[in-house]
Design a protein around this nucleic acid. Structure first.
Lengths: 256, 256
DNA sequence: ACAAAAGTGTTAAGCGTACACCCATGG
DNA sequence: CCATGGGTGTACGCTTAACACTTTTGT
């Protein structure tokens, strides 16, 4: 999975740490809703989270970043490890056999059970990327697409649970992580920002109170420009104050 | 490490998942300060966090619980996975060689480099136990002792970092986890509870405001008994309301 | 005229914070 | 009588939550 444009192969399985993988819940924001990036091997029926393996001489965080680059072309994104999924039954052998046989990974026969049918731990990461900047790296073997967060199909293994856990994790930290900066374009409206919060929290927020709260945090500043949407009153555009944003990240300033 | 009273051996290394271990930051409270449980192999100089390996057919959470039982004799304790430590250089080969040679694990020569000198991922867990109920399982090969949190020596590998990360993790969730219930005996004073919060937060809290805050959460109730300490006014004893505590755990009620 | 979305302001209740005061105990 | 620690109460200020009115724009 380290070859963005080439065929997926595990013939080089010896280069990876055995029994451990990582899965990324990659969030984007587009047309008023949160999206999650999923991929599917063309020969296999189920969608799955973009994942990867870890080179024997590679830090886990680096492996996650590499996975993200290979699917979106984006480097230096907001990426956080949030949980290790380690139950024995989180993957099923029959499901993995199915996946493997259909996909025909470049494994010699004797390596199949040693590698792909073994028990796997998976390290969960979540990422925030700017939807418009991601260049999805689909190819003949692998299809990469955004899914609306409210419209996720049944996924491979425990990947639905991984998404759930990512969201509950983000939710519990929503007061201390400045969400929005990585998800939104440079210029955005407060309604867009509010929808992100509402989606994560799973509840409606009062428009006016939200506005006051966000502005009082001081991380975003109003621009002179306005956003014009057909059929509505034009709304003010805002931008993140990059310096204050970085301070908030570094010093853990509560932002909401 | 699954044989509490026997000699530590890894001759049965094939039974464990390779390249992955877990380390527990076990907190206790005694004589006005937070303690962390550490252990030391008698032949090796450095203290380390109680850790263990994961059987091939064992859930990670179960492995952590087993590790905890083997050191403290306690089952059903508050135990949470908080991070996976996955940097390549988190352990050093020379340090591991030193540990291994001195300890003389029951490994055949050819297995040494395959098992103990390989790269290790470590899953971090933290636990809260009642100091008075823990029965430390020291033996000839392994010494198990409580250390004051403010007096931790330089530990094996990245174990000091693991403790730091555990504390910062607990600190960030202090409003939503009912800390104290597992650390304190059945009957306790609010000063004891306050010291726990102060230690985790690293700052003094106003005695009166703390009291009001805790009581308004409704998880603890005042008893008719008092605690008498030599040289001071006697103070009221409190207990956790077990039902409300369970609800708070289950439903994630903010408790502070 | 009406619906949908945005801008602005007000008010009351609740919570956090900073205190003041008194009591009990032992040195 | 003083130092230490515990019990109780108050008062101010800030944050939060609930809510009303107006503007813009396209159907």
């Amino acid at each position: 999975m380290d070859e963005p444009t080439g065929k997926v192969t595990l013939a080089n399985a010896e280069e990876y740490c055995p029994g451990i993988s990582l899965d990324c819940v990659i969030f984007g924001f587009h047309e008023g809703s949160l999206k999650v990036l999923l991929n599917k091997f063309t020969t296999y029926s189920k969608w799955m989270l973009p994942g990867g393996f870890i080179y024997k001489e590679e830090d886990v965080d680096d492996a996650a970043a590499r996975t993200l680059v290979s699917r979106t072309g984006l480097a230096n994104v907001y990426l956080r490890q949030f949980y290790l999924f380690g139950d024995v039954k989180r993957t099923s052998i029959t499901e993995n056999e199915d996946l493997m046989v259909r996909q025909g990974f470049g494994l010699e026969e004797k390596h199949i059970s040693e590698w792909f049918l073994q028990r796997f731990f998976s390290i969960g990461y979540y990422a925030f990327v700017e939807y418009g900047k991601a260049t999805l790296q689909s190819n003949i073997d692998e299809n990469v697409t955004w899914f609306d967060l409210n419209d996720i199909p049944p996924l491979y293994a425990d990947h639905n649970c991984i998404i759930e856990k990512a969201i509950s994790n983000i939710r519990s930290q929503l007061n201390s992580i400045p969400i929005g900066y990585e998800l939104l374009p440079e210029k955005f409206t407060l309604t867009q920002l509010r929808i992100i919060y509402e989606t994560i929290l799973g509840e409606k927020l009062d428009r006016r109170n939200f506005q006051r709260k966000i502005l009082s945090a001081g991380l975003v500043c109003k621009l002179d420009e306005v956003y014009k949407k057909w059929g509505q009153k034009s709304s003010a555009l805002y931008s993140f104050d990059k310096q204050k944003y970085k301070d908030a990240i570094k010093n853990g300033i509560p932002v909401f």
